[in-house]
Amino acid sequence: MSKVVVIRLAEKPDVSGLSEEQYRTLLYHGLSALSDGKPSRQVLSDLMPRGVVGMKTNCLTGRFNSTPTVLIDALTHLLIEAGIKENNIVIWERSNRELTKAGFALNASSFGRRCLGTDTNGVGYSREFYSCGEVNSLVSKVLTDLVDHNINVPILKDHSIAGLSGGIKNMFGAIHNPNKYHLTNCDPYAAQVINLEPLRTKQRLTVMDAVRVQYHGGPGFNPKHVVMYGGIVISADPVAADSIGLKIIEQYRAQNDLPALWQDHRPVKYLQTAAKLGLGIADESRIDLRTIHVDSNGSSKPGELFP
């Protein structure tokens, strides 16, 4: 069994999204639920006992459809509470341009929280190739050299080729040649990418933003097909996290009279492929899903995944 926590605001947020404080509240409750009641700082320090922690964002599409800066700020706060030094926290992405467009302030110095793209001077990609099946790629040196642990912080959205863009697809941003791996709905490539040695061994946690969910017309921002879901999906199992993300996407597609992704010629087969590679659980019957609602006073109780 793999555990996935979906933690939502009891009341639907407005289109401006959540504040850092609201995210922090969701994370406190969500991480605690993931570990059957341990405090969040304990959960994080158990997962990442020492060293440098990376947070891989998804900033492809500018401010509206990227990892929110306030979510990263909230996670930073929790990591510092867990004993991680501020300069040992690295927000990272494919390029500085993408980070900047999404609202992040770059910092490659030895003071404060770092935030940098792989294209930062002196970073770049690994010299050697990492291989799995059809995938042969250089990997961002942020992951190979700079960080010891990685938290994947994607946003949940529809993808015109892959069907689903969640945590697994987000790691295309860690390799130098993602354009080579979009054939056949990214299967088996997406699964093989996260099975590359540094990606697989350094992955600790997925914290997927599902506050504003684009259930169709992604990966670019397409406001016509956005719903304010108001939650985040948390799991140590990247496959299980995405499987629940897919369930959320499919629910809103059905509600809006859109065909299921497989009927739309975009089956998300890479989840099964990832499960076969032993990277996690895709079978929902083997996922321990905990859905929690948090009210405006900050107290939590079990809730529903939908609406």
């Binding site: 990966p219 670019g220 921002f221």
Partner: peptide, 23 residues
């Protein structure tokens, strides 16, 4: 929505901010 490239036989389809196989 999106485009289909007709330069090479791949006929890559790309939605907003996506690239073809060539990169």
């Amino acid at each position: 929505g999106g485009i289909e490239c007709r330069l090479c036989p791949r006929h890559c389809r790309a939605t907003d901010l996506e690239r073809g196989y060539c990169g």
